[in-house]
Design a protein around this nucleic acid. Structure first.
Length: 436
RNA sequence: GGAGAGAUGGUUGAGUGGUUGAAAACACCAGUCUUGAAAACUGGCGGCCCUUCGCGGGGCUCGAGGGUUCGAAUCCCUCUCUCUCCGCCA
């Protein structure tokens, strides 16, 4: 949620927040008429509130007088009758004011965050900016295979049976594949909690609609999540949802910031609207594992901590010796709630391309405003919204893909990255004979 | 799933229809005292919204949402959550 007060603020000296926000909507390829509607509804809302509150003030005053009279044992019948009429009017005015407020909230909840000034304007992923490339794609004396073919041949991935048991976009991991997945989770959690200062967390994998609203998934992207029928429970699309809402409706102490968490969870996505996209292999599944990094930051520190969080995620790729690049997303490719996003893309020789493996965003106060997460400045001032930052550190399924494709050998076996070997019981190579 | 109890400010905890936004204590902040700290004393101390340049004024808020009433923390209804006992269960 963006701050409506900023939208209303006029700036004599330069372009106003409203002007800039309007421009950012255009950069995302969106219509800006909604802004005028919001401002108009808000003007109306204030007018109605003032009206209703004047009447209520009168009501409170006379109620007090009635109490006085009664206490003295005097007659208050005429005042009570008079108030009976006023009570009806007050109710009507309140309803009107509430309706206007609801309009404002509804419209406000479907407009995206305002990008930071360092975010390049652009319509699509083609206009994202390359920040850096780390590592060299390996040289192969043979044609590298895709992970799906490799995994099936090794007997560690089974797409067909998953299709039978559940449906498309699900997979069985088996033998060394299951072990590798587990090793990756373990390794990432250890690395972030022991070396990067995050507190481990395993959140609920099911949340209510309010939490999804808090992170910005609702109301606009309802169709992306799985709902448990007949309930207000939803399978989480990412640990970001439960963890961000961990502090919802709380006022934190300034000196306790930042709070940093690394959270493991499976993620469930309906992938509505992606029919026909990435149908092969593990790239786009309805269920996948992820280790998520999340920081509740002081506003003055959020940019710095966004950089740190992104580097922390990159460290995993570097330790696994996987070539990757960091992209700065342009306005058109950025998520709804984000003010700035870096994507980390890992090199996949089997597909001869870079694919997203982590997305690290600074949401500033956009989510905190929705979820009401604040801190009290030490000077005893008014509570302020914290900034939230999060990113995958990393998507485990896609990391497994990257390992299969980057570490494959001509005979179809796959070497185990050195840092993972101790988590794999010392296994150095995954071969077909190792599993059945 | 059955039976019961409960939800009040940062915390504990009073309060059952009329100056109760809410006693008290603790915590916290500021000041006095002190070389400093502690103790003691004094004062302050929820959040949101409308209005005002500011001082200030006003409204809402006692788990959430409705209702009764001139007036609700207090009465009624619905929901959520917590606790105890029983059943079931990894």
């Amino acid at each position: 949620m963006i701050d409506i007060k900023l939208l209303e603020k006029k700036d004599e000296s330069g372009p106003s927040y409203l002007d800039e926000y309007r421009k950012s909507l255009l950069n995302r390829g969106m219509d800006t008429a909604v802004l005028d509607q919001i401002l108009e509804f808000n003007r109306k809302r204030k007018e109605l509130i003032t009206q209703a509150e004047t009447a209520k003030s009168q009501q409170n005053k006379v109620s007090g007088e009635i109490a006085q009279l009664k206490r003295k044992g005097e007659d208050a019948a005429s005042l009570i009758e008079q108030m009976g009429k006023l009570a009806g009017q007050v109710k009507a005015m309140e309803l009107e004011a509430q309706a206007a407020d609801q309009e404002v909230q509804n419209l406000l909840s479907i407009i995206p965050n305002k990008p930071q000034s360092s975010v390049p304007a652009g319509k699509s992923a083609d206009e994202n900016k390359l920040v850096k490339t780390v590592g060299e794609p390996g040289k192969y004396s043979f044609k590298p295979k895709e992970h799906g073919d490799l995994g099936e041949a090794l007997g560690i991935l089974d797409f067909e049976r998953a299709g039978k048991v559940t449906g498309a976009r699900f997979t069985f991991l088996k033998g060394a594949g299951a072990k590798l997945e587990r090793a990756l989770i373990q390794y990432m959690m250890d690395e972030h909690s022991e070396k990067h200062g995050y507190t481990e967390m395993i959140p609920p994998f099911i949340v209510n609609s309010q939490s999804l609203y808090g992170t910005g998934n609702f109301p606009k992207f309802k169709e992306d999540v799985f709902r448990l029928e007949g309930t207000d429970y939803y399978l989480i699309p990412t640990a970001e949802v439960p963890v961000t809402n961990y502090f919802n409706n709380e006022i934190l102490n300034e000196q306790d910031l930042p709070y940093s968490y690394c959270a493991y969870s499976p993620c469930f996505r309906s992938e509505a609207g992606s029919h026909g996209k990435d149908t092969k292999g593990l790239i786009r599944q309805h269920q996948f594992n992820k280790v998520e990094l999340l920081i509740f930051a002081h506003p003055s520190k959020s940019e710095e901590l966004h950089e740190k969080l992104t580097s922390d995620a990159e460290k995993i790729l570097e330790n696994l010796k996987l070539p990757y690049r960091r992209m700065l997303l342009c306005t058109g490719d950025m998520g709804f709630s984000s003010s700035k996003t870096y994507d980390l893309e890992v090199w996949l020789p089997g597909q001869n391309s870079f694919r997203e493996i982590s997305s690290c965003s600074n949401f500033e106060d956009f989510q905190a405003r929705r979820a009401q997460i604040r801190f009290r400045p030490q000077a005893g001032g008014k509570p302020q919204f914290v900034h939230t930052i999060n990113g995958s550190g990393l998507a485990v399924g896609r990391t497994l893909i990257a390992i299969l494709e980057n570490y494959q050998q001509e005979d179809g076996s796959v070497k185990v990255p050195e840092v993972l070997q101790k988590y794999m019981g010392g296994m150095k190579v995954i071969t077909k004979s190792a599993t059945h």
